Simulated scan of single mutants.
Amino acid sequence: MSATTAPPAWAASDPYATALRTGRGPLFLRRADGWLLPLEVERWCARADAVDRAVLDRCEGTVLDVGCGPGRLVAELAARGRTVLGVDVSDAAVTRTLTVGGQALRRSVFDPLPGEGRWGTVLLMDGNVGIGGDPALLLHRMAQLLRPGGLLIAETAPLDVDERALVQVVDAARIQVAGDAEGVPAGRPFPWARIGTPALLRLAARAGWRAEAQWTSGDRRFAALRRRAARSSAEPPKRTAVISSQRPRKTSADSPVADR
Rank of each mutant, 00 (worst) to 15 (best):
T83F: 07
A32F: 12
R31L: 15
R80G: 00
G115S: 09
V122E: 08
T95K: 09
W209R: 11
A258D: 14
Q214Y: 05
L36I: 15
G25A: 08
A32V: 15
V100M: 01
E116V: 04
A46W: 04
G69I: 07
R210W: 08
D259M: 08
L152K: 00
P8K: 02
V94G: 04
D162K: 11
A154L: 05
W209S: 12
R210L: 13
P148Y: 08
R206L: 15
L159H: 12
L152N: 00
K250C: 11
T4C: 11
D88V: 04
V129F: 09
L20R: 02
G23Y: 06
P158Q: 11
L64Q: 01
P7T: 09
P112D: 10
G208A: 06
D14K: 10
R164V: 10
L64V: 02
R220N: 07
R249D: 14
G102T: 07
A104G: 09
L105H: 09
A75M: 08
A9L: 11
E163I: 11
R43N: 04
A9T: 07
A224G: 13
Q214C: 09
V122H: 03
A205G: 13
C68W: 06
A213S: 14
S252N: 15
L151N: 00
A205E: 15
L39I: 14
K250M: 14
P7S: 10
A173M: 04
A204T: 14
V167S: 01
R227L: 15
C59G: 02
V109I: 13
G149I: 00
D171Q: 06
W44Y: 06
G183N: 10
A213M: 08
L85V: 05
T4Y: 13
L200S: 08
T97L: 12
A93H: 01
R53E: 06
G86P: 04
S217W: 02
K250G: 10
L64Y: 00
G25M: 05
D219Q: 13
R96E: 09
D162N: 15
A181Y: 10
V94Y: 02
R31G: 05
A173N: 05
V122G: 03
F110T: 01
R24S: 14
V84Q: 04
A229Y: 08
A143L: 09
V100F: 00
L166D: 12
A234E: 13
A154K: 04
L77F: 00
